[in-house]
Design a protein around this nucleic acid. Structure first.
Lengths: 346, 346
DNA sequence: CTGTTAGCGCTTTCAT
DNA sequence: ATGAAAGCGCTAACAG
């Protein structure tokens, strides 16, 4: 606290900064060139003689000039910003995708505007605010958007990537996988292992709902119609897994297998089961969803439906970049699929 | 793919959008008012008669007008954007803070520009790019910034919050805790339990380094000078924990306790130890760092140094908002502390 | 290779 | 309560 550099006291009002920032004209004046030459030196150095280039750079360094991209973007209609909307970040599900997406875009010189929509809580407003910043592309999680949002997005004429889900009618482009099939794959696995009494500990988010339909329909085809479920609020986390399984038992459901809508939930189920003296998988089989790494780290490790999350982020970034640069993308819809990874023998 | 709405084919060049967007003047013309009245209807509705307000709103809705904040920000010098820089997002350490930070800011009408600096990989460049977008405030992870970055930040005259660490000389404001003390607390705990042969499985990130100094100095004071350590690359994760502990054993280090720089690492150590037939904590005590929730979910659950991560994000957001709105903040430096949480009896 | 002119879309300022 | 003029800082478009 002691030697904090004295900062200029602010005005009482929420007013603009006092200190006038260095502008391109200041730099131009000092360097003895025109503003546009400074602009070129910074953005298209190859259009400028090495001599002036160096002079301009020196002045920029000396004056601490920071180009105002707001102004540049306004004029050039290129903001070099790409927006990304996720339901939430604490959900381990999305972190890898965000990271990969952001890394890829920064490598191409884009900044990322992050929107967290907290599942449903007015994605509309969020996106309206985002579009006002004129991003050059936008990444959306999921395919369920209000008609209003769809209209705005289409009217904006910027490339859009929807991710984490599959539909034949994306707004524009899409990178994801079928949650219905993922659910069905869970069912098939459990059926193959001979399970008939299967319980669900399941999150309430929209895509989890689709997976649930997938698993229940596949079970119904095998003649299993009663599938007890304990529903938990997002984000699916360990504690809810424990509670969910306890809830199933409390309700007197006697199951030989539990399927979970996420790996943290599944870990919770495993913990609760072990605490009650059940052996995994002899007494209770548990299958999760999402992250093989995550599932592999439990003990005993879980069977899970694994998703290449980072790949989704990267492909989405690349699709946006391609379209911004005027290249048509070969595939508008990319199905990255999933794979079932069985637990180690442990 | 089938019914994808036909989008206007893009030009080959990375050119601006073709479709001219609706501007405030278009809206004004249709509503039969001046542009400034539209602006007021949107931003200061109380300055406009209910009648014109309604008319303007109707036209906005009908035309799909999306205000261009780039232009507005340029003129008003208020971008309503706040930037946040984190080393990485896959590190479970930061997710809660990002979420809390973003939630708080959106509630106040700010958008968040996310920067991921990937530990060291040119934070300078990242921040230069960010400042060009004229954020009204900036959140930084950590206190180690290049002189150049410090200069730029100070010259920008925007409020800055550094987080996750403590120093008497922040750039501006700070919300964090002492990593040195956190390390020392680990040492004290293990010493109190009677341990003398203590090993480290430790991440290589800068703040972890400070915690290491804290623990080693505290151990040295107790006469323990040899503290074998296995160093792992960030992000500290389960697998590295396993490998780290295996590494210690391979090197012939016989320890009764292992301290880890993060909870995922600690979980890995626990798993590896259990696999080798060691009982936790009877044969091996393990202490982690970071997230009580996380640590509580292991089995047996871990002792850990718990941090209120969401609180850091929230306090940081509030500090920035306060300063942007012209309020002086009472405390420039906030120490949120940490607490040692012992494992359940399990 | 460099400069001039104009204007991106909005909001500040000053009138009325 | 509304409007006219001006300009935020930059770059597109067109010279030269």
């Amino acid at each position: 606290m002691a030697r904090t550099p004295p900062r200029p006291p602010r005005d009482a009002a929420p007013a603009p900064r006092a200190g006038k920032a260095v502008t391109i004209r200041d730099v131009a004046k000092v360097a003895g060139v025109s503003p546009i030459t400074v602009s070129r030196a910074l953005n298209n150095p190859e259009l400028v003689t090495p001599d002036t280039l160096e002079r301009v750079r020196a002045v920029v360094a000396r004056t601490g000039y920071v180009p105002n991209f707001l102004a540049g973007s306004l004029r050039s209609r290129r903001s070099r910003v790409i927006a990304a909307v996720f339901p939430q970040i604490t959900n381990s599900m999305f972190a890898d995708a965000i990271q990969a997406f952001t890394d890829r875009l920064r490598a191409e010189g884009y900044e990322v505007l992050l929107g967290l929509s907290s599942y449903e809580q007015r994605e509309d407003e969020l996106i309206a605010g985002i579009l006002g910043r004129r991003p050059e592309g936008i990444y959306l999680t999921g395919i369920n958007h209000s008609p209003q949002t769809r209209r705005r997005l289409i009217a904006s004429h910027i490339p859009v990537v929807e991710a984490w889900d599959l539909t034949p009618t994306p707004i524009d482009m899409l990178v994801g996988f079928s949650h219905e099939k993922a659910g069905a794959a869970m069912a098939r696995h459990l059926l193959a292992k001979g399970h008939r009494r299967i319980g669900l500990v399941w999150g309430k988010d929209p895509r989890a709902g689709v997976r649930r339909r997938g698993i229940e329909e596949a079970l119904a085809e095998a003649g299993i119609d009663a599938v007890p479920a304990s529903l938990e609020p997002p984000p699916g986390k360990f504690q809810f897994g424990r509670e969910g399984f306890a809830d199933l038992l409390r309700r007197g459901e006697r199951v030989s297998a539990v399927a979970c809508s996420s790996d943290p939930l599944a870990q919770g189920v495993v913990a609760e089961a072990q605490q009650r003296g059940l052996r995994i998988p002899e007494d209770l089989a548990v299958i999760g969803f999402g992250d093989f790494d995550f599932a592999a780290h439990t003990s005993p490790s879980l069977t899970t439906i694994a998703i290449e999350k980072a790949r989704i982020g990267q492909l989405a970034a690349e699709a946006l970049i391609a379209r911004i640069e005027g290249r048509e993308v070969a595939e508008r819809v990319v199905d990255v699929g999933f794979r079932l990874v069985e637990r180690e023998s442990t």
